[in-house]
Design a protein around this nucleic acid. Structure first.
Lengths: 348, 348
DNA sequence: TCATTATATGGAAGGGCTTCCATGAAGAGG
DNA sequence: CCTCTTCATGGAAGCCCTTCCATATAATGA
């Protein structure tokens, strides 16, 4: 059987309290005792039982990360940041993948009451008021990522500014019939990107034509941020009588689908249709897609950092960080791209 | 405070044992008692404390997944399969990302003794004999994925057959100077793919020229499965006096780097250099890369399935599943591609 | 009717840790 | 030399469950 703290105590000739203090390196221990106990711990290969500790201390050293279908390019970089920062705090990640929106409630419930994790990161999902209240009441640490709520810490991106940049860039290229392919508006980023698009049009005295706004996956239960949705939206757009000459698309994966639709229609990018995407996932480089870059890695780190503060019981004021974005010019918009795009490691 | 089993018992006017039996739906409970207790549970919003259960039952309902730098295209599809199957068993995933090979020992140690998880999936990593023995001795459930050990359950791919297919395909295109860019040979798949390459050469009476074999990241501590490594290997290959006219590359991400190197050198694919990759990650479609497809989703599912059997204490015979691969012909090899490649959803 | 068996239930013990309180030794102060 | 602190240490109690054993009750059979 695995050795317990009692075995260590007995073999070292000390009490269990002392062993516990050594493990948690309390200050009230003479160096001699400490080293004697440590030696026994090593000899016995003793390792404290995680759940017993958790039970006694009422904490688990784990945080939940909830993401919608975690198999997406978009989340890779984010996860890298999260992972990095979390391991620096020697916490572990419990991954929850919510593909079905209804299941989110189940997770929330479990997470809140089962006490298996000390905090949670909710990625790209909005939280219902009901659960928001429950989390707040329970004082349960939670940070939103790529999403926003005025009463909860959140880390996201200047979606409006990014969309504005994208749209303005197309305007600067001389386009005046600029469409938008957006994801479902129930997604906060999608909604705000639409605002940025509209604002850019308005600031440049272009009318907002609602026929030029297509919503991906409009009548499905998906969020619309996927390739197929982009593909279909573009097909629809191409079928329009007086179609746009340029389009801002709310994510790079959708843009990937849109590009395919254009190719299939035998159209040339950017001549027949200029495109700007959003996210700057690695794929965008390969596609030569002009897009809006978000500092995902940093977002992940900051989110975890804040979560850790909450877990440690600090009461920092409400965080509402919006990272700013920037435009990455490649080939799909018709502007001259700056030469160098040979960055990023790109693991298998 | 959160309600405990005592609160429930008291309010329902029963003993804690009874409540416990209701929770674990034991058969020995009268329907009336059961429904009364259930009602109280609902009223109190009682939820058993996960760690207390874990401590008492000595199991955690969590499984560790250890992967090398989990931010890689390659693992997305695999994770999807894993995730799917695991949630069907209502287990949760604890994710460990091992970027530094030395840290693997730390994880192993913790996992084995801390008892925070009930089993583990070790992905794309080989296990040292020392730990293999310890896991076996402790009877700790473990399944290798994309890796192999004769004493442990493992799920991987016919790497040799795949590499053979790739190489043979290049031979069939009329090439006779075929190089290989491989990852570090300490990686099992890399080693076996090399064997497949050699075998194909041999079977077709072509000599193995060791100058034509380049190892990515040869003198770093990385595994070589990354874009930068592929980029540099290709540069090196291009500098060779009598260079190959075709190359088999051990992964698609490496191939992505290699393609860039070729583009920078102003060379055309496949005219100046034909390429076949390995993995068939989504990126390969965009690159028009001919490659070897692996059924990653299925691999993930099977691995979890087997792990669950082990956890449940079944003693199935040793599993050593090698999924077979197939060639996906696109543009980079010079053969005519079959038209349709419009598959896979591609989430953000 | 009584003895016997089956069945539902209560609750102590135990799982492995932390933490608090009590204890005793050593050091400080007069 | 004696009293008062200070501080390292031992170990009981408690964290919240499950499980086993004992008990009470009902059902069965003769």
């Amino acid at each position: 059987m695995k050795p317990t703290i009692y075995d260590v105590a007995k073999k070292a000739g000390v009490g269990i309290g002392t062993v516990s203090r050594v493990i948690n390196n309390s200050s009230q221990i003479t160096p001699e005792t400490k080293s004697r106990v440590l030696k026994v711990i090593r000899d016995l290969r003793y390792q404290p039982h995680a759940m017993a500790r958790g039970l006694a201390q009422n904490k688990s050293l784990m945080v939940a990360i909830i993401l919608p279908s975690f198999t997406g390019y978009f989340y890779l970089e984010l996860l890298r940041g999260i992972q990095q920062e979390i391991s620096e705090h020697s916490y572990d990640i419990v991954l929850y993948n919510v593909d079905n929106p209804e299941r989110i409630d189940i997770f929330m419930n479990r997470i809140l009451r089962e006490r298996r994790v000390d905090g949670m990161l909710l990625v790209s999902m909005s939280i219902s008021e009901k659960y928001k209240d429950r989390f707040l009441r329970a004082n349960f640490p939670i940070v939103l990522v790529d999403s926003f709520h005025k009463e909860l810490d959140s880390v996201s991106v200047e979606n409006e500014q990014g969309a504005y940049l994208a749209t303005k860039h197309l305007i600067d290229q001389g386009h005046n019939k600029i469409g938008m392919i957006d994801a479902q508006l129930k997604s906060t980023p999608a909604k705000i990107r639409l605002q940025g698009y509209k604002k850019a049009l308005k600031d440049h005295h272009l009318p907002f034509n609602k026929n030029y706004l297509l919503i991906s996956d409009a009548d499905t239960d998906k969020d619309g941020f996927n390739r197929q949705a982009g593909y279909e939206a573009m097909k629809q757009m191409l079928a329009m009588p007086d179609r746009p000459t340029a389009v801002f698309i709310s994510s790079d994966v959708q843009a990937a689908g849109a590009i395919r639709a254009l190719q299939e229609a035998g159209l040339t990018i950017p001549r027949d249709m200029a495109i700007v995407g959003f996210d700057d996932i690695e794929l965008a480089q390969y596609l030569g897609l002009t897009t809006i870059h978000q500092p995902l890695y940093e977002m992940g780190r900051l989110a975890v950092h804040r979560l850790m503060e909450r877990i440690k019981g600090k009461l920092p004021e409400h965080l509402d960080k919006h990272f700013s974005t920037h435009l990455v010019i490649r080939d799909s918009c018709g502007a001259k791209a700056s030469s160098n795009s040979n960055t990023s490691a790109g693991n298998r």
